[in-house]
């Protein structure tokens, strides 16, 4: 099922993220996804997230689909040229994977193989363009595909709390023009900034899922503030996490904060995307607390 169909029906779409392991044993992850994520609309599978080599996103998508979940296949431009990317997209279509999230990808230098050649033959915008061409039955080289062309829900990302939000909006517009159908955002901890962003982004007429990270500790938030682009956790939230250490450790404080952010953002967007970062088990509690 394409998640765009749900947006069209006016449903509030919930997705969460699963990161494949560095290894090929996925039984535990699949069980966890089935237990905690069956109630949500779709599950994103990251593509060598943070430039760290792991099991492939496409294989994990197929495994999740076989378990009855709806995968969103994340595809980045860091590791593959346009031939490999288009080939993998056709493979996804063959497996019946219909939802995509198309990204540029982190640079190789940030990951565990800094010596690797960064590819970036395409970028997020030209990758969306390539998918659109495939849907029209033609590849980027102008050659016709054989048989019925694939059809995907083409997702893209945007960073609403970035310090260069106008440049982000300009890029978002380019993605829309290239054919993006829906957006997921970088993690939001400042709902007021997100709401301001949405006032400008709504002109593009594309559904947006607000990105949510459940804050695990004050240390994690400080780390994100120093290192993660487009993410800023306000000082009051860090203080809140410091107040009752046991409550924070149990995940209760983090879930409360995340639920509050979702509630504030919900009237302004069309869905939520949860990056649980290992706390997949907290997702059902979070959705309950947020009233979804």
């Amino acid at each position: 099922m394409k998640i765009t169909e749900l947006f069209e029906r006016g449903e509030f779409v919930v997705s969460a993220e699963v990161g494949p392991p560095k290894g090929f044993h996925v039984e535990h992850l699949l069980e966890e996804a089935k237990t905690y994520l069956s109630g949500i609309t779709a599950v994103n599978v990251t593509d060598n997230q943070s430039s760290v080599m792991r099991l492939g996103s496409l294989a994990m998508c197929k495994a999740l689909k076989d378990k009855g979940l709806t995968p969103i296949y994340q595809l980045t431009c860091r590791d593959r040229n346009r031939i490999a990317l288009q080939s993998d997209l056709l493979s996804a279509a063959m497996f019946g994977i219909e939802n995509l999230l198309l990204l540029t990808g982190d640079h190789t230098k940030l990951g565990d193989h800094p010596q690797a050649k960064p590819v970036f033959d395409l970028d997020s915008v030209s990758l969306i363009h390539a998918v659109k061409k495939l849907e029209e039955g033609v590849d980027l080289g102008g050659n016709e595909l054989i048989g019925e062309p694939p059809k995907f829900a083409k997702g893209a990302v945007v960073s609403p709390c970035s310090d260069s939000v106008d440049a982000q909006l300009a890029k978002m517009e380019r993605k829309v023009m290239a054919g993006a159908d829906y957006f997921q955002t970088q993690a939001v901890f400042e709902p007021e900034k997100f709401i301001k962003f949405m006032e400008k982004a709504k002109q593009f007429g594309k559904p947006v899922q607000v990105g949510i990270i459940i804050p695990k500790s004050a240390g994690m938030c400080k780390f994100m503030n120093n290192n993660v682009a487009g993410v800023h956790v306000p000082e009051e939230m860090i203080e809140e996490l410091k107040k009752d250490k046991e409550k924070t450790k149990a995940g209760i404080t983090g879930v409360e904060i995340a639920a509050r952010i979702i509630k504030e953002c919900k009237p302004y967007c069309q869905g939520v995307h949860i990056m649980a970062l290992g706390w997949e088990s907290k997702v059902p509690d979070l959705l309950k607390a947020a009233g979804i």
């Binding site: 540029t104 960064p118 030209s126 990302v157 310090d163 260069s164 300009a170 380019r174 290239a178 487009g230």
Partner: peptide, 27 residues
């Protein structure tokens, strides 16, 4: 750093490139 031709990636922090904090984000 990524030689992008369609606009900035989401990697810049405080205007600095994700690869090299001494380098301003080109986009």
């Amino acid at each position: 750093s990524k030689s992008l031709v369609n606009g900035q990636c989401g990697g810049a922090k405080n205007g600095r490139c994700e690869v090299d904090s001494d380098m301003e984000c080109g986009w």
